[in-house]
Computed example of a mutant assay.
Amino acid sequence: MKTARVAYAGAIHTAFEQDLGSSKGLRLADGRVVAEDQVVWLPPFEVGTVIALGLNYADHLKELSKELTVTSKDEPLVFLKTPGAVIGHRGQTRRPRGVAFMHYECELAVVIGRTAHRVARADAMAHVAGYTVCNDYAIRDYLENWYRPNLRVKNRDGGTVLGPWFVPAEEVADPHALGLHTLVNGQVTQQGTTANMVNHIPALIEYLSAFMTLQAGDVILTGTPEGVVNVNEGDEVITEIDGIGRLVNTIVGDELFGR
């Protein structure tokens, strides 16, 4: 069953989808039923270390081929994020004043369910608890180069959106056969499929767990397909993954953050 985490009436609750007739709502674990806009949506689980993959889709590699010196034959491009980068569904992400190119990235997020250390590829999926949707923003102005993301590009407060739902692994028949879509102000700007990953989930878990121990709550962001475009203050960005969820985020300016 899909679950969410929300803040309501001074407490944090586990929540479930609830049909309100003409709209969708939430049923809290204590039995109360509320509308989606009555709560603050949090990431749908307690987030540990966020492990992000760059250039893990063949079409995205092709899209950036003129700027790259890496290929699909190289080791996975991996970087880390702190939990402070993460916000939930319906949250706001700041676009700093003066930047020229800030873009979304629709990604399947893989949630680790139990400790993984030196896990063989054949055993890797047993360590996956479930999945959620990620919208991982990047500001290209700050990039040192096109294939080595630095901290200002990727580990930004509020720049990694997760949710709205945690979907248990057993409810996803094939995580490598899911459609991904991004809409900016209602217009489709990005479409792809997880089948186009360069390094699939078992290979990523085998690779990562060979040199670092993965713990329950750690998240692997598996990369994005082609179709990233600039977003501006006031834009509504929706990232969707078939069977996983529809994640809504709004771009805001410095003024809301007192800058």
Rank of each mutant, 00 (worst) to 15 (best):
M1L: 11
K2E: 13
K2W: 12
K2V: 12
A4V: 09
R5V: 07
R5Y: 04
V6Q: 03
V6F: 08
Y8A: 04
A11F: 05
I12Q: 15
I12G: 02
T14S: 15
T14I: 15
T14H: 11
Q18A: 15
Q18F: 13
G21A: 09
K24C: 07
K24G: 14
G25Q: 08
L26N: 05
R27H: 04
R27L: 09
R27Q: 14
L28D: 00
D30H: 06
D30V: 05
D30Q: 05
G31Y: 01
V33L: 00
V34L: 06
A35R: 14
Q38K: 14
Q38F: 02
V39G: 07
P43R: 09
F45N: 13
E46P: 06
T49M: 14
I51Y: 06
I51H: 12
A52M: 10
L53V: 11
A58S: 14
L61N: 10
K62F: 05
K62Q: 14
S65A: 15
E67D: 09
L68W: 03
V70F: 08
T71I: 01
T71Q: 10
D74V: 02
D74C: 10
E75C: 06
P76H: 06
P76Q: 09
L77G: 04
P83E: 08
V86G: 04
V86Y: 01
I87Y: 02
I87V: 15
G88E: 05
H89N: 15
R90E: 05
P96N: 06
P96F: 03
V111L: 09
G113P: 02
T115S: 15
T115I: 12
V119T: 12
D123K: 12
D123A: 12
D123G: 05
A124T: 07
H127G: 15
V128W: 03
Y131I: 09
Y131D: 08
Y131N: 05
C134S: 14
N135P: 02
N135H: 00
Y137E: 05
A138Q: 00
I139D: 13
D141Q: 01
L143V: 00
W146D: 07
Y147I: 03
Y147W: 15
N150Y: 02
R152D: 04
V153M: 12
K154Q: 00
G158V: 05
G159W: 07
G159H: 04
L162T: 04
P164T: 07
F166Y: 14
A169W: 07
V172F: 10
P175Y: 01
H176Q: 13
H176V: 08
N185G: 13
G186F: 10
Q187N: 14
V188K: 13
V188S: 15
G192P: 06
T193A: 14
T194A: 07
A195V: 01
A195R: 14
N199K: 12
H200I: 08
I201A: 02
I201H: 06
I205K: 09
L208K: 03
L208G: 01
S209E: 03
G217Y: 00
V219Q: 02
V219R: 03
T224R: 02
T224P: 09
P225Y: 04
E226V: 13
V231M: 07
V231T: 13
E233C: 11
G234W: 10
G234Q: 11
E236K: 11
E236N: 07
V237L: 10
E240L: 11
E240T: 06
T250D: 05
V252H: 09
D254C: 10
D254G: 10
E255F: 07
E255N: 11
R259F: 14
